[in-house]
């Protein structure tokens, strides 16, 4: 999927309209099949950019084009159809705790299924072999019938990534895929992710905190304070550029990722109050 950003700025929907946008006007083109890592210190606007690309955030100013189409000029139904071609994996894996892994993974196929087919799949899962193959890529073979709440945090995160393989999307947008993985697992997971995207012919855009992993991507984009710092090929990313990108945030550069969920676009306080 070809992505074009023309002076696109975005802010969190809950933010005041007068506040400066989390992502300042950005112009960028990403070709179909490209693999891009977005890096930068906390609060740089990485997640905001990703959510804007996923059509989850309407641009405050500027224009987004996916394959030459501005999604925000489409009707709600057409936009929802377009969203079916995007796969957004949030940082916190979106898996209902009481669901089985198989159901959670196959949920990624929903946009391509009719309601009837998806209900039938709840009764007896369709595409079991595909789900198993996707899980195996992320070293989760045999977890197919487990319940999500029986998995560790790292396993859940990898289940969230395995969904991408099921999704049939042209554009994979992955937010911090490594936040609960240990370093060796992180390398395996990112290799599985990039290889899978190549196999599926999907464009892959990932935000990352681990700078060493980011350079495994052909193209690296550095964001800071909502502004583009650099847009380079991996081998052009020098330690000096990284030092400038992470100035005053050196502890993050050294590989201490912040607590997950600190800059997610989701998360509302759970409050339950019923009239009974």
């Amino acid at each position: 999927m070809r992505i074009t950003l023309q002076g696109l700025a975005a802010r969190h929907p809950a933010a005041a309209a007068a506040s400066p946008p989390a992502l300042k006007p950005l112009t960028l083109t990403i070709a179909p099949g490209e693999q891009v890592a977005i890096i930068g210190p906390s609060g740089a606007g990485k997640t905001t950019l990703l959510y804007a690309l996923a059509c989850a955030l309407e641009p405050a100013t500027g224009r987004l084009e996916l394959d030459g189409v501005d999604p925000w000029l489409l009707s709600v139904a057409q936009l929802q159809k377009l969203r079916g071609r995007l796969f957004l994996a949030p940082q916190t894996p979106p898996l209902p705790p009481r669901q089985r892994v198989i159901t959670a993974v196959l949920a990624a196929r929903l946009p391509q299924q009719s309601l009837l087919a998806s209900l039938r799949s709840l009764f007896y899962p369709t595409h079991i072999a595909e789900a198993e193959a996707a899980l195996t890529r992320f070293d989760l073979a045999g977890k197919l019938w487990n319940r999500v709440d029986r998995l560790s945090g790292g396993e859940r995160q990898r289940v969230g990534l395995a969904r991408a393989l099921i999704s049939k999307a042209d554009l994979w947008l992955v937010d911090e895929p490594l936040s609960s993985l240990d370093p060796s697992r992180a390398i395996l997971a990112i290799d599985a992710l990039t290889q899978s995207a190549r196999d599926c012919g999907a464009t892959l855009i990932t935000t990352l905190h681990q700078v060493d992993v980011a350079t495994r991507f052909p193209r690296v984009i550095g964001l800071r304070d909502g502004e583009l710092q650099f847009d380079l090929l991996a081998h052009e990313v020098t330690p000096e550029r990284l030092a400038a990108l992470y100035a005053q945030h050196e502890h993050e550069l050294l590989g201490a990722p912040p607590a997950p969920g600190d800059d997610g676009a989701d998360g509302k306080p759970a409050a339950a109050m019923y009239c009974r």
Binding site: L82, R83, G84, R85, P94, P96, A107, P111, S118, D266
Partner: peptide, 28 residues
């Protein structure tokens, strides 16, 4: 009032409303 993360993500990825209900909201 329940955690809407799973449901929202399904909707954002293009699932229909009833699909998101059966795969996200109801198990939650």
């Amino acid at each position: 009032s329940d955690e809407s993360h799973a449901t929202n993500t399904l909707l954002r990825n293009g699932a229909g409303r009833l699909q998101a209900f059966f795969y996200g909201l109801l198990p939650q």
